[in-house]
Simulated assay, not measured.
Amino acid sequence: MPTAPTGIGVQRPVSSPRGLWFSGVTASPATIRLVCFAHAGGAPSVFRDWPTHLGPHVDVVPVLLPGRGLRLWEPASTDIRELAQEVATALIEQCLLDRYAFFGHSMGALLAYEVACVLRERRAAAPERLFVSGSRAPHLYGSSLGTDLSDDALLAWIRELGGLLGSGARSQFDRRLPTLRADLRACESYRPQPQQPLDCPLSVFSAKGDLIADEEQADQWREYTAVSMRRRHFPGGHFYLVGPHRFSLLRELRGELARYAPAPGSSTPARDGQRMHP
């Protein structure tokens, strides 16, 4: 099995061909790359139409985790920190850290944060900004999120959160069930390690009526950045990003990412503080 560097003098097995971790990587003239992490049980398809809404200066790169899509044959991970190590290795191998930001929703927010911490440990380039959505702060994880429920009860819980509605929901749920349970176990077993706050700014998005992450729980992300934190609160519940209220989120993202587009008459985008760790 091939290996990839995880730090000076350390080698780690690569569990999957490098090209399978990311979809949508292009040689476009975009000025910033938005690496996107989906919710528990989610897949890159959540971000399918984001390039249309975020503009030509943003290259949207969804992360394809084991247990879904072309990686359905791989077992989904139940360890957030181990998964973060593997994602960080893939990002470094594929040279995707020249100018980038992270977006993560729910479990994806937790994973995006851990990947940012791993990259800092490896002295890699830091993200321009970390966008977290539908997620309580990392130290508030560890309670039950549904792995103790029967299949029927878990489906009812997902529907109460606003997901898997409409015809075909049951068959879709059954296909995703092993991956969903693995993802939920990863969140339930997660315990954050003591870390210095990140030196990139945060944008924290929450939604009214979210039963997973309320406003107060989302506010506590503030202690995870040494720079600045921007807060927005939307209607729509936990799965607002796949319903009609997602357009409010997309407008917000487009506005924040627009600052990285080149200024009129210039080919050089503005930078937002220090991006390399000494």
Rank of each mutant, 00 (worst) to 15 (best):
P2I: 12
P5G: 12
P13Y: 11
P13W: 08
P13Q: 04
V14I: 15
S15G: 11
S16V: 15
P17F: 04
L20H: 11
L20I: 02
G24F: 04
T26H: 00
A27G: 15
T31P: 07
F37P: 02
G41Y: 01
P44I: 01
W50L: 10
P51D: 03
T52R: 15
T52W: 06
L54F: 02
G55H: 04
P56H: 13
V58N: 06
V58I: 04
V58S: 07
D59G: 07
V60E: 08
V61F: 14
L64F: 03
R68C: 02
R71P: 00
W73L: 14
I80V: 15
R81I: 14
E82M: 06
L83M: 15
A84R: 03
V87K: 03
A90R: 10
Q94T: 12
Q94V: 04
L96C: 03
L96H: 00
F103I: 02
F103K: 01
G104V: 01
H105W: 02
S106I: 07
G108M: 12
L110R: 01
L111T: 04
C117D: 05
C117V: 08
L119S: 01
L119Q: 07
R120I: 09
R120K: 13
E128N: 09
R129C: 05
L130W: 00
L130K: 04
F131S: 01
V132E: 02
G134W: 10
S135V: 09
A137G: 03
G142L: 11
S143N: 13
L145N: 05
L145W: 11
D148M: 02
L149T: 12
D151I: 11
A153M: 14
L154T: 02
L154M: 14
L155C: 12
I158K: 06
L164Y: 13
G166A: 10
A169N: 04
S171F: 02
Q172K: 11
Q172A: 15
F173Y: 14
F173Q: 05
L177W: 06
L180P: 06
R181N: 03
A182T: 14
D183W: 01
L184E: 07
L184A: 10
C187P: 02
R191N: 06
P194R: 04
P197D: 04
L198S: 10
L198W: 12
C200A: 13
S203N: 06
V204L: 07
S206Q: 08
K208M: 09
I212L: 11
A213V: 03
A213Y: 13
A213K: 08
A213G: 07
D214N: 15
E216R: 15
Q217Y: 03
Q217A: 15
A218M: 03
D219I: 00
Q220I: 07
W221S: 12
T225N: 09
T225K: 01
A226E: 13
A226S: 15
V227E: 11
V227Y: 09
S228W: 02
R230D: 13
R230T: 05
F234M: 01
P235L: 12
P235T: 05
G236M: 05
H238M: 08
F239N: 11
V242I: 15
V242H: 10
P244Q: 14
F247D: 11
S248F: 06
L249V: 09
E252L: 09
L253N: 10
R254W: 04
G255S: 14
A258K: 10
A258W: 09
R259S: 10
Y260P: 12
Y260A: 03
A263I: 00
G265I: 01
S267T: 13
S267L: 11
A270I: 05
D272Q: 07
D272H: 13
M276S: 14
H277F: 10
P278A: 13
